[in-house]
Design a protein around this nucleic acid. Structure first.
Length: 206
DNA sequence: TGCACGATTCTCT
DNA sequence: GAGAATCGTGCAA
């Protein structure tokens, strides 16, 4: 792309998701998650992610090579959505990733910054919440983006749910820290596999 | 077939 | 800061 050229958005392709999962988790920061639904097109800039790395990661649903109907998609193709139901109330969305075919790895989206159709997001969230509280959590962003079990296994390179490319977030603006809500995973809870954009007010936990 | 619990969020104190 | 909400999922029996 050169100065003055027509701006065209690029949807991230398969090869983007076929790299080291940690690298993908960092590179996803700044990218635009888009969902074109019947209610309209909602979009948000990804500002916080977490990496879940294969059978050895005790914090992952695929820990110990566990393979069930729920996490099956992690064992299949890369670049697909892994949406799961949690606490009887909420959904969380991951994208399957990794440079080893068949190895169950994924990146969880923990927070986005609304960039399109904020009014639709507010309506979906139902309550009177400030813009800052619309999408600053893994289940909050699913509610705002209209993501549920229907999007499980969706191909993010060929469906109404996809990610648009954007410039990389500079290394110095990426904060690396420990993951949230995985205290049960022993030493694995200490892995610095949570990434977020420094000073971004939409991050779920500072 | 039964049961304990979770990659969370919200409300109330 | 503590506790509730609420049910699909996973694993033991």
């Amino acid at each position: 792309m050169f100065a003055g050229s027509t701006f065209t958005t690029m949807i991230l392709q398969k090869t983007f998701y076929q790299k080291d999962t940690i690298t993908i988790a960092k590179e996803l920061l700044g990218k635009i998650l888009v969902h074109e639904s019947v209610e309209g097109r909602t979009a948000g800039r990804i500002v916080e992610t977490e990496a879940y790395c294969g059978p050895e990661d005790h914090a992952a649903h695929s820990s110990g090579g566990r393979r069930t109907a729920r996490n099956e998609v992690m064992y299949e193709k890369k670049g697909h959505a892994y949406v799961y139901f949690i606490y009887g109330l909420y959904y969380c969305i991951n994208v399957t990733a990794g440079n080893v075919p068949g190895k169950p790895e994924a990146v969880l989206f923990r927070a986005i910054e609304p960039v399109a159709a904020v009014e639709i997001m507010s309506k979906r969230r139902g309550k009177l919440v400030s813009v800052g509280n619309l999408t600053n959590g893994p289940s909050k962003l699913c509610m705002a983006m209209g993501i549920s079990k229907a999007q499980n296994k969706a191909d993010l390179t060929a469906s109404s749910l996809y990610i648009e490319d954007a410039s990389l977030v500079p290394k110095e603006d990426i904060v690396e820290t420990t993951r949230v809500g995985v205290d049960y995973s022993g030493e694995w809870k200490n892995k610095p596999w949570r990434f977020y954009i420094r000073n971004n007010k939409f991050v779920s936990v500072k």
